[in-house]
Design a protein around this nucleic acid. Structure first.
Lengths: 249, 249
DNA sequence: CGTCGCGTTGATTTTGCTCAAGATGGGTGG
DNA sequence: CCACCCATCTTGAGCAAAATCAACGCGACG
């Protein structure tokens, strides 16, 4: 069960000590933002019963691209990355996975990408088959899954524009605005931004090299758009300016 | 109603003359591949009753990014493109839309991208609201929509890898393999490939310029991987070689 | 105290873009 | 039916943005 302190969790673990045994999900910090937010308390009880808590250390891998999709996951704390690899090692990070996010939205036989923990993380795990069954009998759950898939689909379209047409500076600015917006949606401070991933990861997400990402951060810093990078936190100094760069104005 | 001959439809229009009035959908050529394939004949009748046939000429625009998502569409013939624009005119084509494809999979308030016809096209149009209602009462329909969204999500992840990490040659090779595979899925010949879109469109899809696309085709032709480009058709001469380039081997 | 991973910065190279000029070919009107 | 026109495509030359190659700083950790 979750409950052990992690080194750098983005949110508290889902099950505070002492609550386990009754309905751990009722106390989950990210429930509202997760799939589970669609469920009534009784539904939540049976749903939670089918869940197994998982803990990962930084660097642990959760699933492999191509592997049979036996499980789906709902993240309760930490940060993960979803990525694809090419035979020669080139890597594209498909997305960063935060608390409340769901791994396995795209129903398919095999995982379309690998997933690995960036920070220590806690997740709830469920059998794909079991989720499908529940989704058949709980319309709200089904709707929530469909809505989350829709949102993911809309969001990834923005990423296509970024990778296909934006400059390095625009990509990095977009990335920062994205992190800031996500933090706000999760009820966290939009500024300074928590940036738990390495320059390498950011590069593989934005279709750039580490060096270009680093240079671009330096330039944004020199131009007074962002502040220093203390403790994996970046401060946005000129939100409007950054947003204009991000959108190509 | 559909039924008039088009200049260059990829498939026959959905409603052959004479069948209209009974259950036009029953005769639809692309039904099996479209949302409608999930429906029983009685369901299909009421579903089709809520549909309005639409015809577009090449260049006609169907929906605008940001516009309220009042309608959804199922394509019955022709080819369209879905795209996003930046303030300065840079364009990213999100995807090409073929017969059987659905416009509006990502349930949201506003269309996430614009859609415009590349060739003359015919579509079935339905109110978003009405589709949602039907989807609530027909589990098979709901499941089909969810499955199609899942597939779209998985496919777009491959596009992220392409745009973020592949070379020009790899992109074009991937594009051709993609077209070939799609044709096969629709029961059409995988070779030669029908390429109804302009070099410009291909460029905006692959994150390249027209010139680079053109040069890359020339190179593939010179290297004997593909044949000439007669009548918007390209022949694959070395499928394995092309596939290896596409996948980065 | 040395090592290792990560980030930054600099020098050089390369890929694909930009700018420019022809080629091609379908469509239109004389 | 032919000539012209305009879109689209192709090819070439030079350029620029980002990649690559390389060196170094810095903090964490053994």
């Amino acid at each position: 069960m979750a409950g052990n302190p992690q080194k750098t969790p983005a949110l508290k673990p889902s099950v505070p000590k002492g609550d386990a045994g009754e309905n751990p999900c009722a106390a989950c910090q990210v429930r509202e933002h997760a799939v589970c937010g669609a469920l009534t308390l009784p539904e939540l009880a049976s749903f939670g019963g089918a869940m197994k808590d998982i803990q990962l250390d930084a660097g642990d891998h959760l699933v492999d691209e191509g592997e049979v999709e036996q499980f789906v996951f709902s993240v309760t704390s930490g940060c993960l990355k979803s990525f694809k690899l090419m035979p020669d090692g080139r890597r594209q990070i498909i997305g960063f996975v935060f608390p409340g996010d769901f791994v396995g939205l795209a129903k398919s036989d095999a995982y379309p990408s690998s997933v690995e923990a960036i920070t220590p993380a806690t997740l709830c795990r469920m059998n794909r088959r079991e989720l499908d069954k529940m989704s058949d009998s709980i319309p709200n759950l089904d709707r929530r899954l469909h809505d989350m898939a829709s949102e993911a689909l809309a969001e990834v379209q923005g990423q296509l524009l970024l990778l296909g047409r934006k400059t390095a500076q625009e990509r990095v600015a977009t990335f920062l605005m994205m992190l800031s917006r996500r933090a706000t949606e999760r009820g966290m401070a939009p500024n300074p931004i928590d940036v738990p991933m390495s320059r390498d990861d950011i590069g593989d997400f934005l279709g750039l090299t580490t060096e270009t990402v680093s240079r671009t951060f330096s330039r944004l810093r020199k131009d007074g758009l962002i502040g220093g990078d203390k403790d994996r936190k970046i401060e946005i100094l000129d939100e409007e300016g950054l947003s204009d760069i991000a959108d190509g104005f």
